[in-house]
Simulated assay, not measured.
Amino acid sequence: MNLYFRLFWLFVWRVRHCNSIGFLGTSRIAYRALPCDCDINFHVTNSRYPAFLDLARTYMLAEMGFLNRFIKLKWMPIVNAAEFTYIRDIKPFTKFEIETRLVGWDEKYFYIEQRFVSDNTLHCIVHVRGVFVCKGKQVPIDTMVKEVNFEGPAPELPAEVVKWKEFLQLKKEQNM
Rank of each mutant, 00 (worst) to 15 (best):
F84M: 14
T121Y: 06
F70A: 06
V126L: 02
T121P: 02
F150P: 06
G152A: 06
C36L: 07
N80S: 12
T85L: 10
R115M: 09
G136C: 00
E99C: 09
T100H: 03
F66S: 10
G136I: 00
M64V: 08
E107G: 09
N80V: 14
E151K: 14
T143V: 11
V126E: 06
G104W: 02
E99Q: 13
F132R: 05
F23G: 09
F93E: 03
V145R: 02
S27D: 06
S118D: 10
I112G: 03
N120L: 07
F167I: 14
Q138M: 09
K108G: 04
K146V: 12
N175H: 10
Q174D: 08
N68A: 12
W9M: 11
L3F: 14
R28P: 04
R32I: 15
R69Y: 10
K135D: 14
E97K: 10
F8S: 13
I90H: 03
M60A: 08
E113S: 06
V145I: 15
K135R: 11
L53E: 08
P158W: 07
S118G: 08
M60P: 00
F11M: 13
E97Y: 12
E63L: 07
N46Q: 14
A81Y: 15
E97T: 11
A56H: 03
G136F: 00
L157F: 04
W105P: 04
I71V: 14
Y49A: 01
A154G: 05
I71C: 06
V128C: 05
G22V: 12
F132D: 01
F110S: 09
F93H: 01
L67K: 06
K91V: 15
K137I: 00
K95S: 11
V79P: 06
R101N: 03
W164Q: 08
V103D: 02
W164R: 06
L7Q: 09
H17I: 11
P153I: 09
R28M: 04
L73T: 01
C38D: 11
S27G: 05
C124E: 12
L102M: 08
G130C: 03
L168S: 11
T45P: 02
R129T: 13
T58K: 03
P155L: 01
K135G: 09
E173V: 12
M64H: 01
V128K: 00
V117A: 03
F116L: 04
I125T: 15
V12M: 12
Y109M: 05
Y4R: 12
Q174S: 08
A159M: 13
Y31P: 06
I21D: 04
I78H: 08
A30H: 09
P155A: 03
K146R: 15
I125S: 10
N68S: 14
R6H: 05
Y4N: 15
P77Y: 01
R48F: 10
V103K: 02
C38A: 04
